[in-house]
Simulated scan of single mutants.
Amino acid sequence: MTWVSAGSLLAWVWLLLGQGFFWRTDVRLPERRDPERWPSVAVVVPARDEAEMLPVSLLSLLAQDYPGRAEIFLIDDGSSDGTGALARALAAADEACGLPLTVDSPGDPEPGWTGKLWALRHGIALARARTDLDAEYLLLTDADIAHEPDSLRELVSAARSADLDLVSQMARLRVASGWERLIVPAFVYFFAQLYPFRWVNRPGSRTAAAAGGCVLLRRAAAERAGIPESIRHAVIDDVTLARAVQRSGGRIWLGLAERVDSVRPYPGLGELWRMVSRSAYAQLRHNPLLLAGTVGGLAVVYLAPPVALLAGMLTGDPLPAVTGGAAWALMAGTYVPMLRYYRQALWLAPLLPFTAVLYLLMTVDSAVRHYRGRGAAWKGRTYARPSTPR
Rank of each mutant, 00 (worst) to 15 (best):
R130W: 04
L17I: 08
L254F: 10
W179A: 13
P337T: 09
S205E: 01
H370T: 14
A162F: 01
D26N: 13
L360P: 01
T240R: 15
A329G: 12
D94I: 00
H122G: 02
L272H: 14
P100W: 02
A311M: 06
P228N: 12
A299L: 15
D237I: 02
M362D: 04
R285Y: 12
T382H: 11
T388V: 14
L256D: 05
G375E: 00
S80F: 08
G98H: 03
G373I: 09
R264L: 14
M362C: 14
L86V: 08
E36A: 15
E223H: 11
A242G: 10
A326W: 00
C214L: 12
K116A: 09
R130G: 07
I75V: 15
R198E: 14
D144Y: 08
A329I: 03
L182K: 12
L62K: 08
W199K: 14
L152I: 00
V188A: 14
L126N: 03
A304T: 13
P265G: 05
R243G: 04
L241S: 01
D65F: 07
R121C: 02
M331E: 15
G20I: 11
Q283H: 14
W199N: 11
R374V: 06
V56H: 11
A158G: 07
L140D: 03
P203C: 07
L256A: 07
V156D: 00
V103L: 01
R128W: 05
A222Y: 07
W12F: 10
V44H: 00
G204Q: 13
G20V: 11
A87Q: 02
T388C: 06
A129R: 14
W199C: 08
R278Y: 13
P35L: 08
V188D: 15
I145A: 09
H122M: 03
G123F: 07
R181F: 06
A146R: 11
Y342V: 11
A11H: 03
A367D: 02
D76G: 04
I227R: 04
Y383E: 06
S60Q: 04
P67V: 08
Y266S: 12
Y266M: 13
P306T: 13
A159S: 11
A91G: 05
V357M: 09
P149S: 09
V322C: 11
L284S: 05
G78M: 04
A222W: 03
L269D: 10
R37A: 15
I231Y: 03
L152H: 02
M275W: 12
R48M: 02
V175Q: 07
G270L: 14
L298C: 08
G18W: 04
M275H: 15
D76K: 10
S57M: 11
W347Q: 02
D104F: 04
E52W: 14
R243H: 13
F354L: 15
F187A: 04
R219G: 06
A6F: 13
